[in-house]
Amino acid sequence: MKRRRFFKALAALPAAPALLSQQPPANPQTPSAQPPGGRGGRGQANIPKFELTPADLAGDPTQRFFTPQQFSALRKLSEVLMPPLRGNPGAVECGAPEFLDFLIGASPAERQKLYRSGLDALNAHAKKQHNKAFAELSSTEADAVLRPLLAPVPWVYDAPKDSTVHFVSEAHRDIRTATQNSREWAEAGANSGRRGGFGGGGAYLNPIDPIYKG
């Protein structure tokens, strides 16, 4: 106990490192007050800050979750529901389909099923009505498929009973959010002088005192 107090007192002194170096080496049979490798040198406080490149500027996302047919349908759906408007980039330009491939791939199974089934249903509707995949439809043809599947949803927790209508409403909301919260949307806004609304920022709360793991 006395030994611990002694080292604690030393550490509190401004010249503690110099004084510590004058102490005889600790008995190798007793635990060291400073575990080897547990404390860096003074140099660690002064390491230079590098300008780092965000990952999304360095590499394209890999598409991993949806099948190629499903992803093509999602990309088409994004293009139709959220095209470039009023000087803002559209969902495709903002990488919304690729982001949703990642987000839904990390989501609970129920949401994954909603998306997979919904995209399969869009392809099935397109095949039945136009004998093509949804991704191959013209704007007019896509509208003919989508129009009956649109419904106002005054209460987002009260899902439409038809699962494809439910999917389209959820996907529409997600595509809008993924688009408006993208770097591309924010940069377009900054360039045009648009202020406020989506594409903004906020105070992010870091984890507070996360559970000690040794």
Binding site: W185, G202, N206
Partner: peptide, 28 residues
């Protein structure tokens, strides 16, 4: 049951696109 917050140090301003999930939050 929890720790003492220090919002001045625990909070940092970020653009929403800098968040890993673009504001959606970690699913589930």
């Amino acid at each position: 049951a929890g720790p003492e917050p220090d919002f001045e140090h625990n909070r940092v301003n970020k653009a929403v696109y800098e968040l890993p999930y673009r504001g959606f939050g970690q699913p589930g």
